[in-house]
Nucleic acid binder design. Sequence first.
DNA 1: TCAAAAGTGTTAGTGTTACACCCATGA
DNA 2: TCATGGGTGTAACACTAACACTTTTGA
Lengths: 227, 227
Amino acid sequence: MGENYNYPKHFVAVDCIIFGFDGENLKILLIKRNFEPNKGDWSLMGGFINEQESSDQAADRILNMLTGLENIYLEQLNTYTAVDRDPSARIMSISHYALINIQDSIQINEKYSAKWFDLKDHPDLIFDHNAMVKDAVLRLRRRATTRPIGFELLPEKFTMKDLQNLYEAIFDEKYDKRNFTSKINALDVLVNTNEKDMSSSKKGSFLYTFDEKKYNKKISEGFMFKI
Amino acid sequence: MGENYNYPKHFVAVDCIIFGFDGENLKILLIKRNFEPNKGDWSLMGGFINEQESSDQAADRILNMLTGLENIYLEQLNTYTAVDRDPSARIMSISHYALINIQDSIQINEKYSAKWFDLKDHPDLIFDHNAMVKDAVLRLRRRATTRPIGFELLPEKFTMKDLQNLYEAIFDEKYDKRNFTSKINALDVLVNTNEKDMSSSKKGSFLYTFDEKKYNKKISEGFMFKI
DNA sequence: TCAAAAGTGTTAGTGTTACACCCATGA
DNA sequence: TCATGGGTGTAACACTAACACTTTTGA
């Protein structure tokens, strides 16, 4: 009976802001549309929500189609509902942001003509996708002050410099090396593997991993981490 | 042509978490459903989104129907899309929270059998509305640490104690009167009217108003206000 | 004159920021 | 031996948290 409600129904899509990190810069993964409308333009990866799936499931499915990855870190952001946001039809879109380790995703499905762009230098996007990206960056920043971040974006082993570069890329600010290090150490979520990455200097720099237990504990406790 | 997309369409509703403050406790406005499904149960105020309106417009319209108020402070929260969240049909819902000055809204539309409840002691709600309320409280708290709050929830003139009560209600914590006062004064958004509210004590306590310019400036600057 | 709430400062401790030199190594 | 990036400590300052007494006035 519910299906007979006399109310309008709407197309509802999800769009994904996919963040990655290459050790230096924050990146986003964009696709070149090979379909109408706006064929040839750059946009976020997205798709319609099916009858029997939630928006999270739809975002999972769509990310999997694009990257082949499972269990990507995903968070729902905002829902964009302006009537004319998409000129081809009235389509609402629920944005999600994803954090992926850029190394993992080498086999991006070629069908979508996807490409990583520097967050600070990406092409103009269709519809309201530029606004979606802006909003997602704000959320990513908020998340980075509320929780330790990096687990999802960095390779398993990383240097302190990598982590600092990540925070600097997220906040688009420079930090003092000593202060950053002691702040992170005070957080107590890293483990020094005692291995060294020799590629960046002659002395080499220690490789760390996240202590997943402590990391998740910090996340669930919910604290304020001001860098 | 867009309307012919071969994709499923969905019912999309908005639900409103309406916060008010009576000087002592945080309240939420709930309605007793006089329609199916779940007639007789308590729920948030909500409604379907029309063809030609955005979710914000829908939330505005629905709040106006209930309270007669215009230009209520509204913010979009999350979109709830679990397939079976509403047993009568697959309906997505975009939650919004509203802050209203409880004095303003005396003429609540009787048609909806609405009632103010203490946030800490409200009846069990239908569907996922309990979760919506919980999420909204978290957002309200976050907002109260990122921006000065109160303008929307307090009457035009209020005492320092009222403001402290509001913060204590939002965070469900007690604060030291001296520290609270100096923190708020340091914020520099209040104006002392030099009038006194004589109802609460023999000595009387000063009534303040917000300096709207400074208040909005603080909001737009975006700062961290840890009480 | 007393009861009840309003108003007001100081201090110790904690956290934050700014800042510069030595270390290890491969070339 | 030198050039390069890695690693480390301290001091001044700012902010936070804890704490108690005096004022006003109506009853």
